[in-house]
């Protein structure tokens, strides 16, 4: 055997509850974070990702306690992201029981924080989250793709998918790796919430550019979507939320399905 593909339930947390949105908008409640974390951990999830999408900084202060509570009930790796701007934010999360810290907007605004974190805590703690969206307005110095006769590139978005940066996702991912990222959490904004499958073009482009692990995210609606992304790209992990939260498929069901399709999983 060898290294398995990781199946990662994601908990988007807002004001202390797990929520799920469509295309980063229209949010609905999906349960209690500690309960869901316990359940996924016991069912054989390979890792948990916990994204704090609470809007304001005051409300975010409570996230520390929640991280601690979740960390005390699980015995699998645990990544926490959302609103991490500084070294202090990251330290706070790691000292409260997270194994890795995810940074998105904070890393775009201040890329040096990637290197600082790496030097202090080690590369394995540093997950750079990239939210990317197709942009059909092709400009110079971007990585151009063709699909259905149309040219486009992938633009990095920040502030939870609200604001374009003009940055090319492929170029940014390479820079993040060079600065000290240990892993990339790659979300397709176009696909997120659609249950239409992962963005294969995006995932493949980033995976083939980097030598650090990549987690595919956005668009998973059924186990077959995971099979597809693992067969068509060399991605290391697949993240999903709604298929696990609403009991459409349990973690065990998904992993059994993948194993039958010859995808190496821990089961």
């Amino acid at each position: 055997m060898t290294l398995t593909k990781r199946i990662i339930p994601c908990l988007d947390v807002k004001n202390g509850r797990v929520v799920k949105g469509l295309n980063f908008e229209s949010i609905k409640d999906a349960g209690d974070p500690v309960e869901l974390a316990t359940k996924y951990s016991n069912e054989g999830a390979d890792e948990l990702v916990f994204l704090d999408i609470t809007a304001s900084d005051e409300q975010r202060a409570t996230i520390k306690d929640l991280v601690r509570k979740v960390a005390s009930v699980i015995d699998i790796p645990f990544t926490v992201g959302g609103g991490v701007k500084s070294l202090d934010d990251a330290r706070n999360i790691l000292l409260n029981g997270a194994d890795k810290v995810g940074i998105n907007t904070g890393a775009i605004k201040n890329p040096k924080v990637i290197t600082e974190l790496m030097e202090l805590f080690g590369r394995q703690c540093v997950v750079i989250a990239i939210d990317a969206k197709k942009n059909y307005d092709v400009k110079e110095n971007v990585t151009v793709f063709y699909e259905n006769g149309k040219k486009f590139w992938f633009e990095v978005f920040i502030y939870g998918g609200k604001e374009g940066t003009g940055l090319d996702a492929v170029i940014w991912s390479k820079k993040a790796e060079q600065m000290g990222a240990g892993e990339i959490l790659l979300t397709s904004i176009d696909k997120d919430g659609t249950k239409d499958g992962y963005d294969i073009t995006l995932t493949k482009a980033i995976v083939d550019t980097l030598s650090i692990p990549v987690i595919a995210s956005g668009g998973c609606g059924k186990p077959d979507d995971m099979v597809e992304i693992f067969e068509k790209s060399n991605v290391d992990a697949a993240l999903a939320a709604s298929i696990f939260h609403y009991e459409t498929h349990g973690v065990i069901g998904v992993k059994t399905f993948l194993k039958d399709k010859k995808i190496p999983v821990r089961l």
């Binding site: 055997m1 060898t2 290294l3 398995t4 593909k5 990781r6 390979d46 590369r123 394995q124 240990g182 892993e183 030598s211 650090i212 692990p213 290391d236 992990a237 821990r266």
Partner: peptide
């Protein structure tokens, strides 16, 4: 070795 993905991250037997 840099022929592998580094870090080696995940579940191995």
């Amino acid at each position: 070795p840099n022929s592998m993905k580094v870090p080696h991250m995940g579940w191995n037997d």
